[in-house]
Write a protein that binds this DNA or RNA. Structure first.
Lengths: 323, 323
DNA sequence: CTGTTAGCGCCTTCAC
DNA sequence: GTGAAGGCGCTAACAG
């Protein structure tokens, strides 16, 4: 029983054959001495850290929190730890990447942030370690996992249509962003699928925060257009804002105007009325992201460009049936 | 210019004297070659990782997210990375600690979880590395940072009193938990300060989730007691649940019953009516936790047992004035 | 199948 | 002020 043998047994080398007796003795001793190999030394030797980094825009945003939660769970299940870095003020995107992995603390990266697509992906690629984008995709990127923003949005419109709505507006996000574009396209798809005409006057660009939702709603209300009977809002938070404005203007949801939002979360339940949403499996996305990242780290390098198509309408009370 | 000199300059050894010229040359070369010392090798040598671990119950809970956000920011500012571990199903508390630091990946721990106080603290202490509790405290623990749950709660009651309320109820959390106990005590303090009698019938124990808030509210409503004019609810989420029940029972907030909750968050703004809350500087708590942890890691070992007393009533629309 | 050995990259003491 | 050398704990390669 030698040092080498111990190392091999403890690191679970399958190709290594020992007498069962020896193996047991080693394991027992390790247990007794409360010994576990130092990840630092191991990392130094193998240049693997069994740690993945997650770069997220805002910890405080429930959407990202859900993704992260899924990702951390999956990573832990495979023996990886998770290092996080969020964008705090003053941090540039590449400084984040660098902080995490130029310094080789991390075997790969999960990136849920990506404001400047070009610069970001370029920096990432240069670093020469695997990374996977979540909830975003970009040209020339090996791995990403996104949800079916477009399909889900289409479904939302079709749902509205099935409830009798024929004039359906859209409160969009910032239309240079991936998600916002997809959702707008899905909105158009839905319209087309229902045989409705697309009317640019019925979409107003805003953003995904509550305030931006409020303002976008106000803009639509004061545009002097005929009012829609239903609105598909691009995000949960902005839907909350929109509803607020609607109520402030004396309009009732869903009696005067129905509202459905993309993305679900606990906020939806507590709004009044409780908000009907299209839910997307965010935690699962995080989980898959972790798994593909770890696969890539461990050598399986088939590109995973996955869009998770599961989208579910969560019916609550913000959509009325028109007869 | 020697290897040793380079090491010393790069690690910012203040006691090391070099010609400015040499120092500059070193720095320039490091820059040019894109060199930065390997944290792994450094860690192996010094047994420091410049990483702190955070153990949190649920990433998805805005309260914890805010704390974590503050903590990560402060850690980053001092050159530390942050490893997270949340309790996913099947993880025992000590398995989390072990995963993070028995394996010495981490110089210390921020712990925002602590369900079994005794076992938890004991395990932690045995590990022999610094740790700080956030939003929790326990006997025999060197470092913790909490907010003034009790004072804030008292303030809430006094606020209600100042609006004319004289029958004030409390929807409490699980009364074996630190936070819930403090808030109940603060409620009693407030009553006393206002010259109001404490009536056990006016407090119902529940929990901090939305559902538990709903149920607790229902319990109070159906208890056959005379109804209070105002309720101090122990958490944001449970307040949302309570309001839901109130509305379902045909009671108007704030016309029939006023509501104020402990802890603020974006949900408060979107509720209807927008919820009046007592806000506590959660991110700042996280930040202070990081700072004291890092201080402890770096040798300043004066116990920091801080309670941040800042509490602010955020007035929205869920409290009526009674005349 | 087992034991030995040479570094992984760094910091730190020590003699210069 | 500088340079050399030892070793942190581990793994992989190789010789037995």
């Amino acid at each position: 029983m030698s040092l080498g043998a111990v190392s091999r047994v403890l690191s679970g080398d399958k190709t290594f054959v020992v007498r069962d007796e020896t193996r047991k003795k080693i394991l027992a001793a390790a247990q007794r001495l409360n010994f576990s190999p130092s990840p630092l030394a191991r990392g130094l030797r193998t240049s693997r850290t069994f740690t993945i980094g997650a770069v997220i825009p805002d910890l405080d945003n429930p959407i990202h929190a859900q993704i992260l939660k899924g990702a951390e769970g999956a990573a832990a299940a495979r023996g990886y730890s998770m290092l996080i870095a969020h964008r705090f003020k003053g941090a540039t995107e590449s400084s984040l990447y660098e902080r995490l992995l130029l310094q080789t603390r991390v075997d790969g990266l999960i990136v849920a942030t990506m404001h400047d697509e070009h610069a970001g992906v370029a920096t990432l690629a240069e670093l020469g370690r695997p990374f996977v984008l979540v909830n975003r995709k970009a040209a020339d990127v090996q791995h990403f996992v996104v949800c079916d923003d477009q399909g889900g949005s289409k479904k939302a419109v079709e749902y509205l249509y099935s409830k009798g709505h024929r004039t359906i507006a859209h409160l969009a996000g910032e239309l240079h962003r991936y998600n916002a574009i997809c959702r707008l396209n899905g909105y158009k798809d839905g319209l087309a699928a229902c045989g409705l005409d697309y009317d640019p006057n019925l979409v107003v660009e805003g953003g995904y925060s509550q305030d931006e939702g409020s303002q976008a709603m106000l803009k639509m209300l004061t545009a002097g257009q005929p009012l829609p009977t239903a609105i598909f809002v691009g995000s949960l938070l902005s839907a909350a804002g929109a509803i607020k404005t609607l109520r402030a203007e004396g309009l009732s949801v869903p009696n005067d105007i129905s509202v459905i939002a993309f993305n679900d979360g606990s906020i939806a339940e507590v709004l009044s009325p409780p908000l009907t949403t299209v839910r997307v499996p965010l935690a699962q996305m995080g989980q898959i992201a972790s798994d593909t990242l770890i696969d890539a780290i461990e050598g399986r390098d088939t590109p995973v460009q996955m869009t998770i198509s599961e989208t579910t309408i969560i019916e609550r009370e913000s959509v009325a049936t028109i007869t």
